[in-house]
Simulated assay, not measured.
Amino acid sequence: MIVRKMEEKDIEAVSATCMASFLRSVADTLSEEGISTFSKIAASNAFLDRMKGDNLILVSEKNGKIEGVIELKEGRHVAMFFISPEQQKKGIGRELLSSALNHAKVETVTVSASLSSIPAYEKYGFECEGEAAESAGLVYQPMEIKLNKVMHATSA
């Protein structure tokens, strides 16, 4: 498995990976509006636009196949983080998150976690911060991770 920056040739596979994982784990907890909102965010053209901006998008690739993606917005916020459903619980998420956090520009990185992903983020060291909320049909729990704690935890 290699972790590298997303390239334009990866966009279709990245979009498909996000949608497959979303449809399996999150979609049935949301309204039609939330599903529509997410579909627009995960569309290939939306990834292309964000890739050209200040968002770092990393992919995990094995044998030429995209297995996961993470997007770090402005070096401070995890915007997208999905692993192919059949590749989950194999360490790909931990590897992607670790690589993305190496590019963080702040000490505290945030994420608006889907409610079904809270346990995974907690496993990675994120903590809930505030109350769950909704935006354009997407229900999320604000979470954050303090990087100095993570660095001490992994070096101990």
Rank of each mutant, 00 (worst) to 15 (best):
F22D: 02
S98G: 01
A113Y: 03
A46P: 03
R4Q: 11
T17D: 10
A153I: 12
F82A: 01
V78A: 00
N45I: 08
T29C: 08
V14D: 00
V109Q: 04
L58N: 02
L115K: 01
A156S: 14
A153F: 13
K149E: 15
E61H: 10
K146P: 03
V69P: 03
M143G: 00
E32D: 07
Y121S: 04
P119I: 02
I83D: 01
S39V: 05
A20S: 14
E144F: 04
A104D: 05
L138Q: 02
R94M: 14
S44I: 08
H77Y: 10
G34L: 06
P142F: 05
V26T: 06
M6V: 02
E95V: 15
K5R: 14
A27S: 07
I145S: 06
E95R: 15
E8L: 10
N45W: 12
C18M: 02
H103R: 07
S44V: 10
S112P: 02
H152M: 14
S114W: 00
M6F: 03
H103A: 07
Y121F: 05
Q87D: 12
G93E: 05
T110N: 09
V69Q: 11
G130C: 09
R94W: 15
L72C: 02
M51T: 05
L101E: 07
M80H: 13
C18G: 00
E95H: 14
E12T: 12
S60W: 03
V139C: 01
G53Q: 14
M51Y: 09
A16C: 03
A156R: 13
I92N: 10
K52W: 12
R4W: 12
K90A: 08
A16N: 05
L147H: 00
S84Q: 15
I70W: 03
I57G: 04
I118N: 01
A46H: 12
V139H: 00
G91N: 06
F47E: 03
T108S: 13
N63E: 15
I83V: 12
L30S: 09
S39E: 09
K62M: 08
N148W: 10
E33F: 04
P119N: 00
N148A: 12
T108W: 11
N148C: 12
F82G: 01
E7T: 15
E7D: 14
H77N: 11
E32C: 04
L138P: 04
K73M: 06
V59P: 06
E122W: 11
E61G: 09
A42G: 13
H77E: 11
I83S: 03
I83T: 05
S84L: 15
V78R: 01
C18F: 00
V3Y: 04
E95F: 14
E8M: 08
P85T: 09
G93V: 00
I66P: 01
S112R: 01
A13M: 13
M80I: 13
L58D: 04
M51F: 08
S135N: 12
G68Y: 00
V14H: 01
A156W: 11
Q88P: 00
S155L: 15
N63I: 06
L72H: 04
G53F: 06
A133T: 10
K149T: 10
C18E: 02
V59F: 03
E12V: 09
S44P: 12
S117C: 02
R4P: 10
A46N: 10
E8R: 12
A46Y: 08
S155F: 13
V78D: 00
P119L: 06
L48S: 14
V14S: 01
F81V: 04
D28P: 13
S114C: 05
H77P: 09
A113N: 01
